[in-house]
Structures are given as C-alpha cells and as structure tokens.
Computed example of a mutant assay.
Amino acid sequence: MISVCMATYNGEKYLKEQLDSILKQIQSSDEVIVSDDGSSDLTRTIVQEYQNQYKNIHLVNGPKCGVQKNFENALKHAKGDILFLSDQDDIWVEGKVNRILKEFENENTLCVVHDAEIVDGNLNRVQDSFFKLKNGKPGLLHNLYKNAFIGCCMAFRKSVFEKSYPFPDHIEMHDWWIGLVAECMGNTVFIYEPYLKYRRHGENTSSLHHHPLKKMISNRLYFIWQLIVRWKQVGWHD
C-alpha cells in the first residue's frame, strides 16, 4: 500500500489536474491524504467532490502552522508502507509510481527522488531538468551543501518518516530534512528521468532562488545540529 500525502492551501486553480494525474496511477487499495490548512477558496469543495467518486481520498484538517507542519500532518495520517509527497499544483507524469516502486523492490532502498521538468503556470517548459539546476545526486555531504531533495519528487519508506518525526522547528524545508534523515539511515536512489511537471507560477511557497550566504550557512549548521540531536534520541537503525 502507498500513501500520497498532499498539503493544500487555496489550491483550487490547479488541484483537479494534479489529483487526476495521481489517481490514474494508483490502485484503489492505495490512499491519498489531503491535509488542508484552512483554505478560503474552493479547495476543500474540490477534494470533497473527488471523495464522492474515490473512496481512497481522505481530507483532514491542517494545523494552520505553515506548509511544513501541514505536510507533517498529512504524513501522520498515512497508513501506507511507501509514502509519496505531493504538492497541490504539479502534474505527475505517466509511469512515475511504477518507476519509483521498482526501486523499492530493493529492500535496502529507503528514499527515492526523481528528476522534474520545470514549467510555468500554463505547463510551458522553463527548464528541462531540476537535477541539472541543483546538481542532484545522492550523498549526505553533497545534499547538505546543495540540496536536491524536492518533496514533490520524493517517496520514502514509513520508517524514514518515523525517524524524521517530529520535524524540528525552524528547519528550512521538510523535504530537505526528510532526505537528510534518509541519507543518515542508509540508501537513497536518484532517478535521472523527469516524472513530474514542476509548476512554478509565482504563488509557490518554495523558491528556486538562492538565499543570502549568511542564511545558507546558518541553515546548514542548524540541520547538522538537529541531525546529531535526532541521532542521539532515536539512532538511525532499529
């Protein structure tokens, strides 16, 4: 069983396209968890309409504490063995789920990240590869230096979430944290094929731009500290 964990907030514009692209790739025995953080538009109505047709979609109330805690809330409700993260505004390319699940046939694989094509709000190509932009490849030190763990392209075993939960306060992004925890635990796999249309439309909560140097350094030092704290609390292996 897989769980697709989506965080929403005022996502009515692109949500139907995203849900359609997901639902055509998963089984009825899988689930979609939508954690909505208090949308004031038609987001919840759209999800409820889909619930009338698909019994494996579950709408839960978000904590209203920002995008990281909203994703954490969706993951907390997930029952699957493999957890997929999903934004509300992208498009899953055909074959994404099967390609990722193939990697999880190796019991040592803990986390899988695939490449994405960056597009604008109308799905016009902006860049053909997110990995080229970020020099995406596995490795703890590499991804501390230049993060390529992008949530909308990630899937991981439930054990990775269990080690990364709760997300530390003040981390830069949840997907970066989860990816680094997976690197500490063991094997991550990068797929150099674009299985997502990564929509950048000016209203995204994340940014592709670099932060000032001082902030970049402080982010990484904080991650290192939190990884050490978590290792002392729970260890990386059962």
Rank of each mutant, 00 (worst) to 15 (best):
I2R: 00
C5I: 01
G11P: 06
K13L: 14
K13N: 15
Y14S: 13
E17P: 02
E17C: 06
Q18K: 15
I22H: 01
I22Y: 01
K24Y: 11
Q25P: 02
I26F: 02
Q27K: 14
S28M: 06
E31T: 00
E31K: 02
I33F: 02
S35H: 11
D41F: 14
I46H: 00
Q48C: 10
E49F: 06
Q53P: 10
K55M: 00
G62T: 05
G62A: 11
P63L: 13
C65A: 15
C65Y: 14
V67T: 13
Q68L: 07
E72Q: 06
L75T: 03
A78S: 15
K79T: 12
G80K: 00
D81E: 15
F84W: 03
S86K: 04
S86R: 09
D87V: 01
Q88L: 12
D89Y: 10
D90L: 05
I91V: 14
W92P: 05
W92V: 15
V93D: 04
R99P: 11
K102S: 11
K102I: 05
E105A: 00
E105M: 00
N106A: 02
E107Y: 07
N108V: 00
T109E: 10
T109P: 08
L110M: 05
V113G: 01
V113P: 02
A116I: 08
A116N: 08
D120C: 05
D120E: 09
G121P: 08
L123I: 10
N124Y: 13
V126A: 09
Q127L: 15
F131E: 07
K132I: 08
L133F: 12
L133D: 07
K134C: 10
G136I: 04
K137L: 11
K137S: 11
P138G: 06
P138N: 09
G139K: 13
L140Q: 01
L141Y: 10
L144C: 04
K146V: 11
A148I: 07
F149Y: 15
F149W: 09
C152A: 14
C153A: 12
C153K: 07
R157T: 00
K163Q: 13
S164A: 15
Y165V: 03
P166D: 03
P166I: 10
F167A: 05
P168A: 02
P168N: 07
H170M: 08
M173L: 13
D175T: 09
W176D: 07
W176V: 04
W177G: 03
W177R: 13
G179L: 01
L180R: 05
M185R: 01
G186M: 02
V189Q: 14
V189T: 09
V189R: 14
F190H: 13
I191D: 07
E193R: 04
Y195F: 15
Y195G: 05
K197A: 13
R199F: 10
E203A: 14
N204C: 14
S206W: 11
L208N: 10
H209T: 14
H210E: 13
H210T: 09
P212Q: 01
K215W: 08
S218G: 03
N219K: 07
R220A: 04
R220P: 01
R220C: 06
L221D: 02
L221T: 02
Y222P: 08
Y222G: 08
F223D: 10
I224H: 05
I224L: 13
W225P: 08
L227N: 02
W236H: 05
D238L: 12
D238E: 12
